[in-house]
Every structure is written in C-alpha cells, then in structure tokens.
Design a protein around this nucleic acid. Structure first.
Lengths: 201, 201, 201, 201
DNA sequence: GATGAATGAGTATTCATTCAT
DNA sequence: AATGAATGAATACTCATTCAT
C-alpha cells in the first residue's frame, strides 16, 4: 500500500524543485536579491505556483536554512557518535563541520549568513577587526594565564562565533588555506578553550 | 572668531541629526527596513533634505558603520597603549571592547551585523549551533591536546568570530551574564588560543 | 483552432490598449508630460501593469513612433508603386503623405515631433525619411535631369524639412488651407527642387 | 549723467553671466538636462540668485532663444539690405544664414531645436522665421514672377522647414559637406520654389 | 495542481523653487 | 544683491502576492 497518491508525489516533487532553486539562488545572491518569480522560473514553474507550496518568500528561506542546518547537525553528531574521549570528539566534530563546508559552500553562506546587503560593509569591518587582532597578537610573545572559571554560555557563543566565522571565511577562498590547517587550528583553540585548566598554572 | 559660517554650522548640525537618526533606525530595524524618508523624518526634515547631505542610503550607512568602528578601534588601542606584557594587553583590549559594547548596544548591532532580514533566521541557527556545542561540551571531561602549528590567519578569524559573536550576543541581554564573566571568559580563551604552546603536552 | 492561448490573447489585448492610450496621450501632451501611470490608467489598468508589457516609457514611445512611421512609409510607397514618370511619382507620394496626415493628425504630431524631448526618436525617423527621399531620387536620375550643383544629401534634408514642417503645420489648422493647395504647392516645390536644371537660367 | 547706478550695472552683469551660462549649457545638453543650479553654479552664483534675475528656468530659455533669433534675423536682414533683384536677395539671405550657423553651432541647436522639450519656443521661432520669409516674398512680388498655384503660407512653411532642417543637419557635421554646396543647393531650391513659373511646363 | 496576467503599495531620487539670513 | 539650506511634489520602476481560468 503506497503512502502517497500520485498527486501528492507530484506536489512534493514541485516543492522539492522550488527548494532546490531557492537554495541555489539564495546562496549566490542573498535573500532580498532573489524574487519569488526568480525561484519559480528557475524551478520551471509559473510565478503563481510558488504560493501553492510556500506561504511566502521568507517561509521558503526559513525552510531551506533550517533543513540545511539539520543536515549539518546530523553530519556533526554522527561523526562524533562513536567517540568517547574529548579530543577525539572535538576532532570528529570539527572535521565534519569543515568537510560539510567544503562540500556545500553555498549552503554555508545561507546558514552562516554571508547574505544581506549589509554584508559587504560588515565583512569589511570584521576584516579590519581581524587585522587589529592580528597586530595585537604579533606583539605578544610571553605566556598567558588561564583562570578556571569559564562560563559555559559565553564559551558556547565564543565557539559558535569562532567556528562560523572561520568556516564562512574559509569557503570564500578555500585555496588560500589548506583544509588540514583550518581543522588543526580550530581543534587546538577549541580544546584550549574548553580545557584551559589543563594548561600549567 | 569661528572658522565656520552660520550656514556651515547649520548644515553640519543637520548632517549630525541625520546620522543620529540613521544610527537609531539602522540598529533597530536594519539597513533595508529603513528608508531615506524615515531617516529624514526622524531627523525632523523633508525627504529631499537627505540628499543634500548624503549621496544615498548606503553612503549614510557606511559612514555610520565605519566611524563607529573607528571609535571602537581607538578605544581598544588606547586602552592597551601602556601595556607591555601579553596578559595585560589582552585584558585591556577585551575590557575596552566589552565596555564599548555595554555603552553602545545599538552601534554594536550595526558594526557586528545584527542587521538584515536574514538575521533573525541566522540568529536562530547560530543559537542552535551554540546548544549543539554546549551539549558536546558537557560530555567532555578529559584533557585535550594542542599542536604547535596555529595558523595566524585562521586564528585571527577565529578570534574575530568569537569576540564579535559574544559581544553581539551579550548586548541583547546583558542582564543574563555579568560583564566580568564575559570579560574573564573571553580573556581566558583568547590567551589559550594565542598561547597553545603554554599547555602541557 | 487558434494559434494563441486565451492568456496570450488577453496579454496582446492589454498591450494594444496601452499602445492606444499612449498614442492618444503622447500626441496631445508629448513624451515627458505623460507618465506611465497616466497610460496605464487611461488603458484601464494599474500602474504596475505597464511594465508587464513595455520595458519603460521610452520603449512604448519608440514602438508607437516607429510603427506609425512604417505605416506612413508603406502608404507612400504603395501609392507610388505603379508610377514610372517622375511627376506622377512625386504627385502620388505627396498625395499619400498629405492624406495620411489628414487622417492621422495626432500621429503626425508624434512622428514629426510637434513637441517633445523625443528628439532622438524624431531624428531617427526624419533620417529614415531622408533616406526614403534619397532612394526616390536615385530612381529619378534615369528619367530626370539632375544638375550638378544639387547635392543629393542636402536636397534630401531640404525636402524632409519642407515636407515634415508643412505637414506638421497644416494638421494644426487644416481648415485654413485646402488640402489641394498644400498638395499642389508641395509638388511644385518638390519638382522644382529636383529639376532645377529645367529652369531657364 | 549716467543712465545706470552701480547697483544696476552689477545686477545687469550678473544677469548677463547667467545668460551666457545658460546659452552654453542649453546648447550642449538641451533644456531639461540643465538645472537652474547648474546655470547659477556655472555663472559663479548660488542657486537662489537665479530667481533674482529670472522668473523661472523657461523664462531664461525663452530669453536666450528669442535674443539669439533676433541676432540671426538682423544678420539676415542687413545682409540683404542693399539687394534689389530677387536672386541676389535670396543669395545674400542664405549666405547670411549659413554663415551664422557656421559661427554659432550651439546657438543654432537652441533656436532650431536639435533636441529639447523646448518645442513650444522652437515653434514660435519657426513661425517668426516663416513670417520673415513671407515678408521677403511680398517684396518680391513686385519684381518677381509669382505663379498662381503657389500658396504663400504653404511656401513660407516649406522654406522654413527646408532651411531650418538643412542648417540643423549641417552643423552636426559641417565637415561632411562644403559650405558652398549647402549654400548653392539652398539657393537653387529656394529660387526654384519661389519661381516655379519659370520652369517649362 | 498549475498558470500567468494583473495588482498596487512601496521607495529612491531629482530639482524647481522659496525664504530666512 | 546674494546666499544656500531646506522644501516636497513628482515619478519611474519593483515585486510580493492574488485569483480567475
């Protein structure tokens, strides 16, 4: 006994083609430079058909973004499924994230927001910020201290910011930095952040 | 004896009021949900007046974003001006950043991009990402390893991501986390990231 | 069995109504005193509908102007189709031009520029008109006497200026001058211009 | 006793500079691509000053166009002042017109409308031009042969159209046709038109 | 289910003109 | 007489969304 009628299957297929078209267009042009007509046309349908499958443009966008994110989450979790020790877990997760980014550059732009009109300005500013930090770093040569009290919420946000920023930055020019370097660096900061107490002092 | 004519002063005042209005509106609504009419009206002028002072909407936005960033940069650099040792430098910088964020919540949203239509979705996703990481962390108890090879570019991006994300996250609900906790956490990760070699191996 | 779908027919009908509305409005008010809203409203549609059928206002204008001109050209050419001798050809052409003007006063204002910033389009059309005349002239060389001191390019421009000006002037107040007088005068100047050598010297 | 106070002279000078600036700008860009700000700036004054001297933009344009036309009329009339016979009169007038066009290419574009929405003004001027020609014709009746089948009004319009079109066309590319060829051709058509009876029938 | 013509609110931008200084 | 900041009406063009077929 089939769980779907032919009509249902046809509808699902149309929906899927719209989602595909949306993914492609949003990742290259961003949310507001893509019209519902663009999406319908790219999917091979008339403008009105869009609204037979999605409430509005942002509903499609949300669906794409969330489903992409769930994909990524599954990848990360299953990669670390068999790991018990911390370092292996971190390594597995970071490797999964970077692999996903490498394979799905456009999708990374959707979920980590290389989107938007303001993105150009924001990117400039964050780049300046990176320079500022890099300059500071070059002056630093001595050893640091690491207190034991690391707030979990702040830490999470910090790691999110670090991972999303690095991944987003890397997919724009993957040739500039070998994948392994990205992975090792992320792992090492990750572990350092989560285990500061393990450092001497 | 003033170096500017009354007309020049009036013009500069109008410009300043437009900039203020823009800052306020952009920080709460984002670039494309604000019109040039909105800005002019909020500043107390007619629509056309906007174009007497700015080439277009994005020119105003860029000016606000860049000048705000320069403010922040100055704050950070002068805070660390007298420091020589690494830990003090890092502390001074982080404290300056967090203080600035605390005092200029709306501006932080502009320069670190809480902007945009897609921001809502992006924020949701990054929050899920944060949970994912937090969950993973709670399972982790053992010590990590830190390889010596930390790529400077990746590290910069990682720190930028970390700092901007944490600050942006914190200003949305500063009451939830004491400022000192944010500062100490950022410093400890920062130092850990920049001094991986200091960990035992 | 019709070759067009109902939708295509509806679209073509809308287009045609826009063209009609444009012809009417342009001829009485000129290109820049007519808005795309005016045209859409006069045709019975909403403003946005205009852009479903024309790229912009000047595209509509060009289409009206060029198609009108082609109409006129066909009228003139078919009127002179059977003529072989010069005087009959000239008479047939002039009569066709004046008849067209009499029947299509508003259109004459559009193509011969009773107003407008549409000068670019008008210039193109008058240049085509000059070519038309030059072509006619080249056929007359065989049968006619062409003095060496009449430059063909200058002559074409002179005849274009004469014909377009007289026709444009006449349609503004056709009652003031009988059609036959206009025709006979144009013919006599035309022949004189093309046959100056026939004058006694 | 001076007829003007210093203040009056200053005002007249400002006015004159505005007129000059207008002439230059209108001839190269046409009526509606020049703003009152452009004119004031080019004349070295602030925007508001424009309205101290002219009621509005079109008043300035009309003044420029009419005074230019009066210049041309004077040139033509004084050139033919001493002529009594028809052919010499026609020659003198045509030579004066072509010489003026050659020396004042930009001004020709203003009065004979190489562009512009200034059609209303242009139409007035061409009507004056037609009168000028008609007047000349009435003087020729005494001396010349005027056939019954040439309507004076139509003839005037025809000559106006011919002369203005040829002159306007020629100034756009004077190198393409020698001045003498233009002159001789215009004269020959002009005489043919005014003396059609002289043709053999 | 699909179509696609039509909608109409929304918005950036220009510029002739005014008027307080 | 000159200034120049401010005005605000005007307008082309876009696009998410609807609905009759």
């Amino acid at each position: 006994m089939s769980v779907s009628t032919p009509a249902e299957r046809a509808k699902a297929a149309t929906r899927a083609r719209m989602l595909d078209a949306g993914r492609q267009l949003f990742s290259s042009r961003g949310l507001h430079r893509v019209t519902t007509h663009d999406i319908a046309r790219a999917a091979g349908f008339a403008p009105g058909t869009f609204y037979l499958h999605f409430a509005d443009k942002s509903a499609l966008f949300r669906e794409i973004a969330h489903s992409t994110f769930e994909d990524l989450r599954r990848r990360i979790e299953s990669a670390a499924a068999g790991c018990t020790a911390l370092p292996e877990t971190v390594r597995a997760r970071v490797e999964a994230l970077v692999a996903y980014a490498d394979e799905n550059r456009e999708l990374i732009r959707i979920i980590f927001g290389a989107d938007t009109e303001a993105a150009a300005v924001e990117a400039e500013l964050l780049d300046k910020f990176a320079e500022l930090i890099a300059q500071g770093r070059s002056q630093m040569v001595a050893a640091g201290q690491m207190p034991a009290d690391v707030d979990p919420a702040v830490l999470s946000q910090a790691l999110v910011g670090m991972l999303s920023r690095v991944v987003r930055w890397w997919v724009d020019d993957p040739a500039a930095t070998p994948r392994e370097v990205v992975i090792e660096t992320l792992i090492s900061i990750h572990l350092a952040g989560t285990h500061p107490a393990s450092r001497e002092r």
